[in-house]
């Protein structure tokens, strides 16, 4: 196949972010949030995510038994609030450990690459 000459940076960055998305979402659901407020919370912390991606992800995580949800009708329109259940809390703890190990490993690899003789 002929090599493409597109700049791959944005695509690869997107893939990296996509890999961390579930962990980012779970981390913000210790307290109940509805989709739009969750999106804003993530964006404010430097993890913007498209609404079209976030909402299906929330439903998938709920189907997988990691989130609980409830409808709340206060003074505004009805909103579905999601929060971690026990399985979600346990998964978040495990994923956090995996993430920390990964960050340490990558840090070591990248540091090694910087100092490697040519």
């Amino acid at each position: 196949m002929a090599p493409t000459h597109e700049n791959p940076l944005s695509k690869l960055e997107l893939e990296l972010r996509r890999g961390a998305l579930v962990l980012a979402v779970l981390s913000q659901l210790r307290s109940a949030q509805y989709g739009y407020s969750l999106r804003q919370a993530l964006a404010q912390r430097g993890m913007p995510i498209e609404e079209g991606t976030l909402y299906p992800l929330l439903r998938r995580l709920e189907k997988q038994g990691l989130l609980a949800s409830e409808w709340r009708i206060d003074d505004g329109p009805p909103r579905r609030y999601y929060h971690l259940n026990d399985a979600g809390e346990a998964l978040l703890a495990n994923l956090t450990t995996v993430w920390s190990d990964l960050v340490a490993t990558m840090g070591g690899l990248l540091k090694g690459a910087e100092h490697e003789p040519e």
Partner: peptide, 17 residues
């Protein structure tokens, strides 16, 4: 099965957007 829940949520999201 999921139609109504998603529809309701989507309508709220689009209104917020």
């Amino acid at each position: 099965r999921e139609r109504n829940g998603i529809g309701l949520e989507l309508r709220g999201l689009l209104a917020d957007m």
